[in-house]
């Protein structure tokens, strides 16, 4: 049982990270902290993708001077690369929104910016 738990450790980390991210999104009222939660969720998904493509005793899928040909799966790593770049783009967008909201309302608390004032 304990061996099984230790072997599943990356997925446990993913579960804990997802929980923390959801908690930050649900309980925090500060926009910047909510964005940190979103970033955490993105990291959890990246870790999940990399961990699900791991093959026991595999090496990185690069053939330059490689000692063996048993390699981990390359497709999930490519998907992770895509996810990281898109995460950077969306993070930049959301942080810019937060900056503009702070300029307009003078606060980043979501309770105070909920009202529509034109």
């Amino acid at each position: 049982m304990i061996t099984r738990l230790l072997l599943a450790m990356p997925f446990l980390t993913v579960a804990v990270l997802l929980l923390l991210a959801l908690g930050a999104l649900l309980f925090k009222r500060n926009l910047i902290k909510m964005l940190m939660g979103l970033s955490l969720m993105e990291s959890a998904v990246n870790l999940f993708l990399v961990a699900i493509g791991y093959r026991q005793d595999g090496v990185a899928p690069i053939f330059t001077n490689v000692p063996q040909t048993l390699m981990v799966l390359p497709t999930v790593q490519a998907l992770t690369l895509t996810a990281i770049v898109i995460g950077v783009a969306t993070s930049a967008m959301m942080l810019s929104f937060a900056m503009v909201i702070y300029k307009k309302y003078g606060t980043v608390d979501v309770r105070n910016i909920r009202k529509l004032n034109g």
């Binding site: 738990l5 997925f11 997802l18 699900i52």
Partner: peptide, 28 residues
């Protein structure tokens, strides 16, 4: 509730032995 679900999934997933590797073996 979500924590219970996540933990169940996380303990059930095998680590180090991916289920389908046909496409990745072709790429390699």
């Amino acid at each position: 509730i979500l924590l219970a679900g996540f933990l169940q999934v996380a303990v059930g997933l095998p680590f180090g032995k991916p289920a389908r590797t046909d496409m990745d073996d072709y790429f390699l």
